[in-house]
Each structure stands twice: as structure tokens, then as C-alpha cells.
Computed example of a mutant assay.
Amino acid sequence: MEMFDLASVLGSHHVVLYFYPRDNTPGCTRQAIDFSDHDADFAKEKCIVIGISPDDCLTHADFRDEHGLSVELLADEEGEVCKLYGVWQSETRDGVMKRGVRRSTFIISSDGVLRHVLHDVTPRGHAAEVFQLVKQLNSRKLNGNRQKHGRHA
């Protein structure tokens, strides 16, 4: 129930922003639990994981408490952030216009660069896939530093 400023963590952490349709649906619950199960691994890689959906803060709190989630959950009730990231979608099903969130993940490196965009992800195993991409960010950074220092040695 507090505001979150992405800029406040960039510079020191990579950020995984994952957008999901709704709390307490089977796929969304699986995804949130998987990210929470890997929370310590992400922290070792200096990365924070943030889930965003149109649910309100109280719904997020119940969802977090019911499933023992450790990832940060942000409420985007008006869909403003979802629209900024292009994951708010409209579709017609059975003649009815429905709006919702396209399940997507964005990986932003600590230098503020968007490194990976994954759309229409499958919840099962997604956290492990994202973790490998974050690890690659850190290994590239280390290898880049080694090469940089190696040229001057």
C-alpha cells in the first residue's frame, strides 16, 4: 500500500517486471509461487521481481498472505502501467469485447536498459527461464569487466 518508483532501484538492481491478469487464478498463482520460490536466487543476482496486475492492494495482500508470496505485487487498477508497457489488450470473444492483461515479462538491467521482453508466457517454469536470463546479464557484465581490465593490464 505504498508507491513504488522503479528509478529508485535501478543502478543497484536488475528488475523483473511481470504482468499477469488476476490474483488467485491457477496460472497467476503458479507464476507468483514460482517467482517467490526463486526469490533468494534472484536476490543473489542483485535482482528484484515485481508482479503487476489490475487488482487492488487489498486483493494483492490477501493473495500474498494466502500463498506465502515474497515477491512485490503492484496494483495497476487503472491499467496505466499496463498501457505504458503495451500489455493491456482488448479482444472480442463470443461477440463481447473484453479487456485484460497480456501475460508478459520485462527484464531491465541495473543500468536501466530493457534487455528482454517475453509475451504470452507459460506460467509453469517461467521463473526459472527468467532467472537464467538474469544470470546471463551478470555474467556478461563480469566478462565485460574482465576484458576491459585485461586490455589495460
Rank of each mutant, 00 (worst) to 15 (best):
V16S: 08
C47E: 01
K46Q: 14
R22Q: 13
D62E: 13
K83A: 14
K135Y: 04
R22P: 03
K83S: 13
R124L: 09
H14K: 03
V130G: 04
L84H: 10
T59W: 01
L69M: 08
F35C: 04
H38Y: 13
V130Y: 04
V49W: 04
D94A: 01
S104Q: 03
G95D: 08
E80N: 09
V130Q: 03
T122D: 07
V113R: 13
R64K: 15
V130D: 02
S109L: 06
L133M: 15
S53A: 13
F19C: 08
N24I: 01
F19I: 04
T122W: 00
G125V: 06
E80H: 09
W88V: 04
G79T: 06
D39N: 14
D65V: 05
N143R: 11
I108S: 12
C82T: 01
F19T: 03
V113W: 09
I50Y: 07
E45Q: 15
A32L: 03
K83G: 12
Q147T: 08
L74F: 03
T29V: 00
V81I: 15
H14T: 00
P54N: 07
D37S: 12
F19W: 06
C47M: 04
G68F: 04
G112R: 03
E45N: 08
L69C: 08
F106I: 06
V113N: 13
T59E: 12
